[in-house]
């Protein structure tokens, strides 16, 4: 008898449960569900805006209802996780070299975090009354 090389099967649906790095990856990927859902919420907002003042304020009320706030809360947590994971790995995609000197990863990530802070403050400043 010779059964030959042994091929070990993985579970297509559950492989990511096996290690924390895979679980973190899957959470990171699923943040996109909330980025997409928030974009659709904005589209609904634009649609309600086109229907007039009353419809638009009903949309805002829905966004601020308990269900709306629950969605916003999860979406905000997902968005923050997306931002952090995105900026942390930015140095892998962006390599800045000057001669033999390589800009440290912390500078590249740090610049992204600084930009994030600035953009956030700018948006809040522009929308203030």
């Amino acid at each position: 008898m010779n059964t030959g090389p042994l091929v070990r099967q993985i579970s297509r649906r559950q492989w990511w449960l096996g290690a924390s790095r895979y679980r973190r990856y899957m959470v990171r990927e699923l943040t996109s569900l909330f980025i997409g859902a928030f974009a659709f919420a904005l589209i609904v907002g634009l649609w309600r805006l086109s229907q007039g003042a009353q419809a638009f304020s009903a949309w805002l009320d829905a966004m601020h209802s308990p269900a709306g706030l629950a969605f916003n809360g999860i979406a905000l947590a997902a968005a923050l996780y997306h931002s952090v994971t995105w900026f942390n790995v930015a140095p892998k995609a962006i390599s800045v070299r000057i001669g033999t000197f390589k800009l440290p990863d912390s500078i590249i990530s740090g610049a992204h975090y600084a930009g994030w802070l600035l953009v956030s403050i700018l948006v809040l400043y522009l929308v203030r009354v």
């Binding site: 980025i35 928030f38 706030l69 809360g73 905000l76 968005a79 997306h82 930009g115 953009v119 948006v123």
Partner: peptide, 20 residues
Amino acid sequence: GTLSALLAPVLIFLIGFAVP
């Protein structure tokens, strides 16, 4: 991904929580 990393948190906060 880059745009949402920069903007999504502040926009969700602004539209979702700033008024309540």
